[in-house]
Design a binder for these strands. Structure first.
Lengths: 117, 117
DNA sequence: TCTATCTATTACTCCATTGTCATACAAGGT
DNA sequence: ACCTTGTATGACAATGGAGTAATAGATAGA
């Protein structure tokens, strides 16, 4: 049986880093833009309304995390998502967050009933 | 059809925060310790070998993120995991990381073959 | 009541990361 | 060759978060 202490530090570290990549709004936005397919840096800059340097940096982070793939064409660099697990994770989290909000709404409705009359 | 720009900033922000909670090794260690069931702060302090203040802080973060539940008993505070989605997410990520490492191993083996003779 | 234990919180330092600016590099077109 | 465009990188300031030490509060027991 697996005990808590049996999980190596290295593993915990890497899992934390993976989640860390997904813990930045700008990176999530970039990933969402890459849902349709590969895009070059300039496309992403225009879509995100931030600096080109910033986009390149975030792309580099995700590239090194093994989430993206890079393809050079002329002076442009095209990035695409290689690891669809990311979208799966985002879907799971979004659904859970939505459920919570709905649950909150139910609490309000229940209170509304007890307050009636 | 959903376009990239249609995702509200607030949603992206919250998803990022959710992943952010899971992006700290100490928190993952605490969650792993809570796999078996609820534990009090002191138990977690002894198991993680860090300060009590640090454990309380991380627990608070996860409590506010809706991941944990708190139960008071005497002077002790017992925490337990309410959102099992977390373990599901960790499992998915761990499996993916394991696959990557195995893939890397395959590359080494393939190179070993091409280098033979 | 006094003490001991357990937990939460504050103030503080330290480290990591984000975003920006400027610059360097590479490739195409004129 | 020159210029333009697209991308990557380094330095920098600002921000945020982790960890620690000290302290306060709460509860059980003597």
């Amino acid at each position: 049986m697996k005990t808590a202490e049996s999980v190596p530090t290295e593993v915990v570290q890497q899992v934390a880093e993976y989640f860390g990549v997904l813990s930045e709004p700008m990176r999530l936005r970039l990933l969402n833009l890459l849902r349709d397919g590969e895009k070059c840096v300039q496309d992403l800059v225009e879509a995100t309304q931030t600096s080109q340097a910033n986009v390149s940096k975030h792309l580099k982070v995700m590239l090194q995390a093994g989430i993206l793939t890079r393809r050079s064409e002329g002076t442009s660099a095209y990035y695409s998502v290689t690891d669809d697990l990311i979208f799966e994770l985002c879907t799971l989290v979004c659904d859970r967050l939505a459920s919570r909000i709905e649950q909150q709404a139910q609490y309000f409705r229940a209170f509304s009933l007890t307050s009636k009359q």
